[in-house]
Design a protein around this nucleic acid. Sequence first.
DNA 1: TAGATTGTTAATCGATTAACAATC
DNA 2: TAGATTGTTAATCGATTAACAATC
Lengths: 206, 206
Amino acid sequence: MSCENAVRRLSEYRRILCKLKALGFTKVFSDHLAGAIDVSPALVRKDFADFGLTGNRKSGYSVGELIDKLNRILLKEHTEEVIMVGCGGIGRALMNYNGFAGEGIRITAGFDSNPDLQNCDAAIPVLDISRLEVYINSHRIRTAIMTVPETYAGTMADRLAAAGIRAILNFSPITLKNLPGCFIRNVNFLYELENVIYFSAQDTPE
Amino acid sequence: MSCENAVRRLSEYRRILCKLKALGFTKVFSDHLAGAIDVSPALVRKDFADFGLTGNRKSGYSVGELIDKLNRILLKEHTEEVIMVGCGGIGRALMNYNGFAGEGIRITAGFDSNPDLQNCDAAIPVLDISRLEVYINSHRIRTAIMTVPETYAGTMADRLAAAGIRAILNFSPITLKNLPGCFIRNVNFLYELENVIYFSAQDTPE
DNA sequence: TAGATTGTTAATCGATTAACAATC
DNA sequence: TAGATTGTTAATCGATTAACAATC
C-alpha cells in the first residue's frame, strides 16, 4: 500500500514543482512541499530518499532537478502510449479527456466489440476487439485502461495480461486482483459515490 | 483513513451479499466474505462489529439481515439525489452511467456555465450554474459530483459547501481538502494513470 | 561560526491480523 | 457434548511522524 501511496505522492509533488518552476522558483524545502500536499516534511524527505531524490543540507532541493528525476521515475521522458478497452460513455470521455496530452500520456487507440462504436478514421481510432493482441504487440503497449461491463472484465483482464499488458487501470464495476506480471488498479465509481453519500449523512462529514 | 476504507469495504460486502442472495444463500460466514474481497476473516467481523452488524456464534451471519442493515448504513433505503457540477465529457458520461440507477442513486440535474451544454428538457436537465443554490436548497441536495476545470474547482467547492452540500466527489484535476461541514473525496484520473504507468515499468508489477 | 535544512533513526500511530474465550 | 463460528483482545505490521545528528 505504501508504495502505491508513495508513487501517488510523487505525482502530487511533481505537479506542485512544475507550478513552482513556472513561477520562477529554483529551490524548495521539504516544509513547503509538505504543506502543499498536507503531509509532514519528514514524509517528503523520506519519499525523496526512498526514490533517490537528494537535496542539499543547506539550500533544500533544486526544483529543476527534482522535476527531471521525477520525470524519469514516472516515465515522463517519452510519451507513454495507452489503449482504451471498452469505448462506451466513460471510455470515450476519457479518450477525449484533455488532462493527459500535456502530461506525456497519449491514448492511441480504443477497442470495442460493438461495430457502432468502431471508427478507424477517428483522431483516436476505435478498432474491433479482435485486433487487440496484434495492436498491443506491434505498438509495444504496456498500459491499458479498461471500461467494460462487469461480465467481461475478468476475462478481458486475463486477455490483456496474456497479450503483454503490464498494468491496467480498471473502471469496470468489479474489483480485480493483480495478475501474475500485471498490476491492476481499480477505480469504482459506485463505491466512490456510496462513500461520499455515507459521509454526507454523518454529523461531521469533515 | 480507516473509516473511509471501512465504508468502502461495506460497499464491497454489500455487493457480494446481493449476489449471494440472488443465488439463494441465506447464511454466510466471515470466512467466505473475507475470501471474496481479499481480507482476513477477522477484519470482516471487526467491520461488522464496528457498524453494529451482528451474527450468530454458530450459524454465521444472515444474508438478508446484513443487506438490510448495510442498506440503512449506506443510505440505500431511499433514492439518493445527487447533482453534477460541470457537464463536460466526463460529467456527461457519468450522468449517463448506468451503474447508479439500480443502486438507489439518481443524478437529478447537471450545472454548467456553458450555454451550449445547457438543456432544460433533457432526461437529466443541465441548468445554468447560476441556478445552483436555489436548486440545492429546494431539492435538499446533500451530495455533488464535481467535474470542473482546475481553475474553478476550489471556489466551486466553497460555493457548494456554502449552499449546503455535505459531501463532494471531486474529479477535477486538483486535490481539494475537506471543508468545514463538507467531506471531499478526490479522484484524479492523471494520478491514477501515472500510478499504473509507473507499475507497468516495474520488474514485478504484481 | 551560527543557523538552517537534510537524511535517517527511533517513536508513534493506526489499521489489519492472529489468537482465543465465549457461546450457539 | 463436540464442533464451529462469532466477538474481542492482544500482537503484528506498515506507514507516518518526531527528533536529532550530520553538514552545508
